[in-house]
Amino acid sequence: MSIFELFIQSFPRLMDGLWITLSTTLISLAIAAVLGLTFGLMLVSNSKILRGIAIVYVSIIRGTPIIVQAFFIYFGVPNATGIRLTAVTAGIITLSLNAGAYTAEIVRGGIQSIPKGQMEAARSLGLTKTLAMRKVILPQALRIMLPSIVNQCIITLKDSSILSVIGLAELTQTGRLIIANNFESFKMWIIIAIMYMIPILILTRISKEIERKLKVGQN
């Protein structure tokens, strides 16, 4: 069977897998954006407590493999609490917490890269710290953060394949199941690889376009 025929034959199942991969990733990234902004702001906060909480969160996530995080959330948490999670829920929680921590670091770096004079100028005009953050610091920081954020999106999309270990029927897991039936592992993994590459290439392209537009806007 040619690779093309194989693709046509497995098309419905591959599309289901791709859908799970993309939707899980997108939902996780949306949650991670909120987590990243919140914990990123906490990392640059004046309050030692808030900073401490954020540092602990980021350290735990960065210090442990995502596969251990997935096992902990899918098997560990239900074992202790009795609350059973579906693979989808556990997968989304894992990816969100993981990407959220890295995004927090990106947000911290972006904010800290803005010269101190910007905050001082805004505050000297009477703006509250919150307003100064929102109107002056974050819009500038976002431009600087953009390449790293896109990079994080790509990493999260690829990391979602790890969720196959908890049985989530995403693209990688779908590939494994198909191969278990037809033994076409060489061709199937090429198909799977290409299916990951396409959305990632599109994402890269979009980010280049946004970066170009922002540069024009800023002169």
Partner: peptide
């Protein structure tokens, strides 16, 4: 601080806003 204007050595204009928007920012957002 609203009643105390400050001018800095390094100007510290907001680079992502036009000249006009720089001036309008504080009165409008407050």
């Amino acid at each position: 601080r609203r009643n105390i204007g400050m001018v800095f050595q390094q100007f510290n204009l907001f680079p992502h806003m036009s000249v006009k928007e720089n001036i309008m920012l504080a009165p409008t957002s407050l």
